[in-house]
């Protein structure tokens, strides 16, 4: 063996994998960049323009419409809360049918496939479809958010159920407990925390979404931002943006304090939006 050579810390296989990943990413990156054929017309002029707009938004903020803006914000929050509660409740029950360890294989696979397809379509597109059918207003907004959240939470919850120890289920069955009782006493207790965390995470996401639903006409504060920016009223838009930021920021802070972080669950596996 070559004693002067570098001693590798990670395994050879891992190093090859990382090298491939790195090179692949670089190639993909520059290829994509080339294909996009980006144009920087205006260049610095635009940056200066952006800064002057930002100045108008932040320093000359116009609070005169605060009542409308706050009402719209309340509507956004309501949409997010309602969609989260309904989807979490329904998803909770359906996830038992979707979990492979407590359900029939056919049922579980079917539920998972449907959930995967629903999740693959972005929330805003679901909302757009509902708006197309039901017309403008918060109602299609709730439905659109609900649809996607539901599919997302079915997947997340059923994953938690699948992680429940087989012994729990076995022990309850052996006492003569029915399926429903086994679920309630053997499966539900260990997943409670995960269910709450996932719901909290989804609420954070839904809140962000609910503030942009207005762009497709589904109510909430997004409509205000859309309207003010359309007439280049940066002073009023500044206030709307501030409220959007505060909505999302305060919830993030609150959940951080309550230690409802499920970031780790995400890395393990999941997908959002």
């Amino acid at each position: 063996m070559n004693t002067t050579g570098k001693i590798s810390i990670i395994s050879e296989k891992q190093r090859v994998l990382y090298t491939l990943l790195f090179i692949g990413t670089l190639v993909l990156y520059f290829f994509s960049l080339y294909q996009l054929k980006l144009e920087f017309k205006g260049g610095w002029e635009n940056v200066l323009k952006a800064l002057s707009f930002a100045k108008r938004m932040l320093l000359h903020m116009d609070l005169s419409d605060w009542k409308d803006v706050l009402t719209a914000a309340m509507e956004s929050i309501s949409i997010a809360v309602l969609a989260t509660i309904i989807s979490a409740t329904l998803a909770f029950f359906v996830s038992f049918a979707a979990a492979s360890n407590v359900s029939l294989r056919v049922v579980s696979n079917l539920c998972k496939a449907v959930a995967a397809v629903v999740r693959a379509v972005p929330t805003l597109i679901w909302t757009l479809i509902f708006v197309a059918y039901l017309g403008l207003g918060p109602f299609p907004g709730v439905l659109g958010l609900f649809f996607h959240s539901f599919a997302y939470l079915v997947k997340a919850f059923s994953q938690s159920i699948e992680e429940v120890k087989e012994g729990n289920i076995e022990a309850l069955k052996a006492t003569g407990a029915s399926w429903v009782q086994t679920m309630a006493k053997g499966v539900y207790p260990p997943i409670t925390t995960a269910v709450i965390s996932w719901t909290a995470l989804r609420f954070e996401f839904n809140l962000g979404m609910s503030s942009i639903l207005g762009f497709v006409g589904a109510g909430g504060i997004g409509m205000e931002l859309s309207n003010t920016m359309r007439i280049f009223d940066f002073e009023k838009a500044g206030f709307v943006v501030l409220i959007i930021f505060l909505m999302s920021f305060s919830v993030e802070m609150l959940f951080h304090k309550l230690k409802l972080n499920v970031d780790k669950c995400i890395v393990k596996d999941s997908s959002n939006s």
């Binding site: 503030s211 943006v241 959007i244 930021f245 999302s248």
Partner: peptide, 11 residues
């Protein structure tokens, strides 16, 4: 904490 869509509108 400001959604990408809102950033697009702003920019």
């Amino acid at each position: 904490n400001i959604p990408a869509l809102a950033w697009t509108i702003i920019l």
